[in-house]
Computed example of a mutant assay.
Amino acid sequence: MSSPQGDGTRSAPAGPRRLRLVESVVTVPSADGLRFVQGTRALHVKGPAAVLRSLAERLGEGLDAHDLDGASRSARLARELESLGWLTDRPPRVAEEPCATERQWGYLTAFGPDAPLMQSRIEAARVAVLGVGGVGTVVAQHLVGAGARRLWLVDFDTVALHNLNRQFLFGRQDVGVPKVEAAASALRRLAPQTDVRGIQRRIGDVTDLAVLPTDLDLLVIAADTPRTIVDIAWLWAAEYGVPVHMAAVGLETGYWGPLLIPDRGHCWPCFERGRRALLPTGHAALEDAELEPMPYSFGPSNTVISALLAHDVLEYLARGHCPSENRRGRLALDGTPMGFLEGRPCACADGPVGSRT
């Protein structure tokens, strides 16, 4: 994958291979040594404070790769940090001018040591968002904010006044305008170089998705009509090997996932059969009786679920995996702890429905 383009940064001149701490790892003094910390993970190193501070400074500046050899304290520590994925041989970036994504490079190193590669993957990704409403607008905004530059937006609706409590790409001036047009304009204001293609279309069957390119990196299902929208999108996506992700928000709960990747044997019909088999008695019948989407929406609850989806979408695009791969995350908005539903391997006789042979 090529290095990121147009992000306002350049790499330091190439030289001997050197290893340094990734940006998301910080050092914290302790009573008997030093801790290297990344999020909730930590490596505690005991020893004299002055020696460890000096070693941490050397790691921040970079060690020659051969320093990992031998039995010295620095070599042992460097090998341990490398095993955690906390060292990188990428030279530090030298900023030429401020850019929108400069603060996320350190965050990306929480996914892996090669932040430039992951950033370039996000920028090169081809993503379609099906439904430009409460979920789709949030996901699209995060995609473009993170550097994605090629999006397809599909929706048949126009902006209504009641959308504005949660669909923050739109303003009052957009009321009556097709959502795909208003969203595309807002995203281009955020990042003028973004190629956003709005498609005003109602999806009723698989043929309606023929307007999308078949080499997408991801299809995000953010629509709730028709009720069979996930079935329709999966049939299209599985035929071409396009991964799909999804989310929805209800009155008391919301979910995101599963991310389904046809080439990894994931299967929407099998996932859904497994989910419904776990429902309490009578709940499947209640689901079947729901003829229309819930008519109520609340900005904060809608946004938190959509942001969790956006986070996993970007993590998948950056490194090829995310926590909701073949899993559904569920968040009860009354404070109940978050939970995940694990998907089962595909049990279809001929493999995932609609998948390539």
Rank of each mutant, 00 (worst) to 15 (best):
R10E: 14
A12C: 03
R17H: 07
R18K: 09
L19E: 05
R20Y: 01
V22L: 04
S24Q: 04
S30N: 00
D32L: 15
D32F: 07
G33W: 00
G33P: 05
R35G: 00
V37D: 00
H44D: 10
K46E: 13
G47C: 00
L52V: 01
R53S: 03
G60N: 07
G62D: 05
D64G: 09
A65P: 02
L68Y: 06
D69C: 10
S74Y: 00
L77I: 13
L77Q: 02
L87C: 07
D89E: 13
R103F: 14
W105R: 12
D114M: 01
A115F: 07
A115G: 11
S120P: 11
S120A: 15
V127K: 08
A128Y: 07
A128E: 00
V129N: 06
V129S: 03
V129Y: 05
L130D: 04
G134Q: 01
T137M: 06
A140E: 03
L143D: 02
G145S: 15
G145N: 05
A148Y: 11
R150K: 14
L151F: 06
T158D: 15
G171K: 05
R172P: 08
R172M: 10
P178I: 11
K179Q: 06
A183D: 09
L187M: 03
P192N: 09
P192T: 12
Q193W: 10
R197S: 10
I199W: 12
G204F: 03
G204M: 06
D208W: 02
A210V: 02
L212I: 12
V220F: 07
D231R: 07
W236P: 10
A237V: 07
A237L: 06
Y240H: 15
M246L: 13
A247N: 08
A247T: 08
V249G: 00
T253G: 09
L259F: 12
H266I: 07
R273A: 14
H283F: 14
D288M: 12
D288V: 11
A289K: 04
E290S: 11
P293L: 02
S297L: 02
S301N: 12
T303Q: 13
V304I: 15
L308G: 12
L308R: 10
D312C: 06
L314Y: 00
E315M: 13
Y316T: 11
H321L: 08
L331G: 05
T336L: 08
E342V: 14
C346E: 04
A349K: 12
